[in-house]
C-alpha cells in the first residue's frame, strides 16, 4: 500500500511561552492521499494556515507526528529531499515575490537550489506551463498584474518538481475573473503533473470547486471532515459548518 502523501497525527502548534502561550492548533489529524486535493476551511485565527506553515517548516514550536510521503519530518529543519517533494504557494502575490528580482532570477535561483540543470530550458518550460510564455522571463514583479504574479509564484513552486503543493489562499487577493483563471490553471497542473494539493481558504465555493475532501477548523480544532459531495448536498453535520455555508451565501446566491 502506498503511504498517504501527507499524514498529520495529533499535531499541536503553539506560540509563545506560558502564561502567554497561545495554542493555535490542537491535536489535529489529517491524512491526504496521493493525488488527492484536500481543503482546509475556517475563519481567520482558526489555525488553518498554521497547519500549512508547520508542515512547510516555517514554525518550530509544534509536537505530534508529521509524515510526508512516508518520511517523518522533525522540528523546523527540512532537507533538500523534502523541498523536492513539498512546495508552497502563498496568499499574496504582491508580497511573496522579491520586488527587485526578475522572473528569471526567481526561477533560476530555485532551480539552482534544487540542483536542477538545464536551467535555461527549464525556465521556458515552466513559464509555458503556467501560461505566461517566454516574453515574461525578464520582467520584474511591478511589471506584472496580480494574476501574472501568482502564476510566477506557482511556477516557482513547480520548479522543484514537487508532488505536494501547499496552497495558502492562492486566489483571495485576486479579482473573481482572475481567480477563475488561476483555479483552472491549478486544476490543469494537478492533472498534468499528478500533484497532491492541500489548500487553505475561507471561501467554501472555491474549495467546493477545487477539492475532493475538506476539513473545517474552528479555534484550532478540526470540527468536521467531509467529502465535498456532502458539502454540496448541505449534509454538513457540525453546526459550525452549516453556519459557514449559510454565511458564505454561495448556495442559491442569485435568488
Amino acid at each position: 500500500m502506498t503511504p498517504p502523501m501527507l499524514a498529520i497525527r495529533d499535531l499541536n502548534v503553539w506560540f509563545g511561552e506560558p502564561p502567554d502561550r497561545v495554542d493555535a492548533v490542537k491535536s489535529a489529524d489529517i491524512s491526504v492521499a496521493q493525488g488527492e486535493s484536500f481543503g482546509l476551511v475556517g475563519e481567520s485565527g482558526s489555525g488553518k494556515s498554521t497547519i500549512l506553515r508547520a508542515v512547510a517548516g516555517l514554525i518550530d514550536s509544534w509536537s505530534g507526528d508529521l509524515q510526508v510521503a512516508g518520511l517523518k519530518v522533525r522540528g523546523a529543519r527540512r532537507d533538500r529531499q523534502f523541498f523536492k517533494t513539498v512546495q508552497m504557494v502563498f496568499q499574496d502575490p504582491y508580497a511573496s515575490l522579491h520586488p527587485r528580482h526578475s522572473v528569471d532570477a526567481v526561477l533560476s535561483e530555485t532551480l539552482h537550489l534544487q540542483g536542477i540543470g538545464n536551467v535555461d530550458q527549464r525556465i521556458n518550460k515552466l513559464l509555458d506551463d503556467v501560461g505566461l510564455g517566454r516574453s515574461f522571463r525578464f520582467r520584474y514583479p511591478h511589471q506584472l498584474s496580480g494574476g501574472q504574479r501568482q502564476r510566477v509564484a506557482i511556477a516557482r513552486a513547480l520548479a522543484a518538481e514537487p508532488r505536494l503543493l501547499l496552497l495558502d489562499e492562492p486566489t483571495s487577493a485576486l479579482d473573481v475573473s482572475v481567480q477563475a483563471e488561476i483555479l483552472n490553471l491549478l486544476s490543469d497542473l494537478r492533472a498534468e503533473h499528478d500533484l497532491t494539493y492541500l489548500m487553505v481558504t475561507h471561501d467554501l465555493a472555491v474549495v467546493g470547486h477545487m477539492c475532493d475532501r475538506i476539513a473545517v477548523m474552528q479555534h484550532g480544532r478540526l470540527v468536521e471532515e467531509l467529502p465535498v459531495a456532502d458539502l454540496r448536498r448541505g449534509a454538513a453535520k457540525a453546526e459550525y459548518t452549516r453556519g459557514l455555508i449559510e454565511a458564505s451565501g454561495s448556495l442559491g446566491a442569485t435568488a
Binding site: 473573481v176 475573473s177 481567480q179 477563475a180 483563471e181 483555479l183 483552472n184 486544476s187 467554501l204 465555493a205 472555491v206 467546493g208 470547486h209 477545487m210 458539502l231 454540496r232 455555508i245 458564505s248 454561495s250 448556495l251 442559491g252 446566491a253
Partner: peptide, 19 residues
C-alpha cells in the same frame, strides 16, 4: 462573464468559464 467565473457550491463544473 464575471458572474459565470464564480465557482458555485450548488452547480459544480469541471472548468470555470474564463472572461
Amino acid at each position: 462573464g464575471l458572474l459565470a467565473s464564480l465557482p458555485r457550491l450548488d452547480a459544480p463544473q469541471d472548468r470555470l468559464p474564463v472572461l
